[in-house]
Design a protein around this nucleic acid. Structure first.
Lengths: 184, 184
DNA sequence: CTGATAGTAGACAGACCTGTCTGGTATCGT
DNA sequence: ACGATACCAGACAGGTCTGTCTACTATCAG
């Protein structure tokens, strides 16, 4: 029982939770609704997840692994092109319909305690993200890769908030210009 | 009755709501707790605010007016120094204890519908913020004030998220560097 | 065959949520 | 003096939340 093991019912729950949590927020979506839309019995849900918080944590880690998969599947060869591709991907996604900002930033807003497991999962993904930037910058031969990575994190966070709250066309142009200023 | 009129009880409610909403999120804090900590009867609360959503809206607009007051009280003369001062203030605030990110960004994360009055109040503040940047940039004699203002919004959003989720010392240095790159 | 595992449906407990209502007190303007 | 306004205390209704429990079914490994 329990654990991260896979099963059709568990996958359905996680997929439904991902969709509802992202679109409407974590605290606004109840277990009853998730299991109803996933077509799963309540006992089955609590068979796979010990609590709602654990489902939220699973939601965060699934988002993280999907982002890693997207980056891993990228076809660009050079680190520079990969970096450009990552931001282009985020812009494309952010300008699309149903965009609701960054799931990590949004979920963190609902979990004030930095020591909470959900927040720690978020922090881990942010560390991975920053290290991804740093490694690509270093691979591009930048001696100041560390500090540039931190600046790209600023740009990244501004991007996800901006696409959520402001005009996507404007944000896209600003991100392009800012990225060029940072990288070139 | 009702409306934005002031009264000791109403002020206490708003002040308590501001503290709890910011520290713990909007959906996590109930009316019962707010009125208990504010020392106000439930009927008195509903006498001043027609619903919780209206209290949230009042919370957002109060935060907005306080930020305007902070900017209006700044002593720096030149637009350039005011811009620098605004970001220095945000960094100081973000590095302090009890920082929980931007109340507008955090609250928006809990209100998915852009047409909701709370979201519209947030959007209005963001418009004011961007125009503030633009006017200060224009006052500093920048011909590209419009596009620079958008970039400063990116930096601002990256700042508030970064101070909330990452190491404040690192974020402060990154913001300083990024701001210098944009302004100088 | 048997026992463990995964699944269904749904009742239930106990807490918490928003919002209304009753009933009473105090202040203040006219 | 009197009516309106602002406030208090707290009960109440109706709903929703998480999490547990009962009872039953199907599958599959040993």
């Amino acid at each position: 029982m329990e654990g991260g093991r896979r099963s059709p019912a568990r996958d359905r729950v996680l997929e439904t939770a991902q969709r509802l949590f992202y679109a409407e927020g974590v605290h606004s979506v109840g277990i009853d609704r998730i299991i109803a839309e996933a077509g799963v019995a309540k006992a089955t849900f609590y068979h796979h997840f010990p609590s709602k918080d654990e489902l939220v944590r699973a939601f965060v880690t699934m988002q993280a692994s999907r982002q890693r998969a997207v980056v891993a599947a990228m076809r660009e060869e050079s680190p520079y092109e990969r970096l450009r591709g990552i931001f282009a991907y985020m812009c494309e996604f952010g300008a699309g319909p149903g965009y609701r900002g960054c799931p990590f930033v949004n979920t963190a807003a609902e979990y004030p305690d930095p020591a909470h497991p959900v927040r720690q999962a978020i922090a881990e993904h942010r560390r991975w993200n920053r290290e991804l930037y740093r490694d690509l910058l270093a691979g591009d031969g930048r001696p100041d890769a560390e500090r540039l990575a931190d600046i790209l994190m600023l740009l990244r966070d501004g991007l996800v908030v901006g696409f959520d709250l402001d005009d996507p066309v404007t944000v896209r142009a600003s991100v392009q210009e800012a990225l060029t200023r940072v990288l070139d």
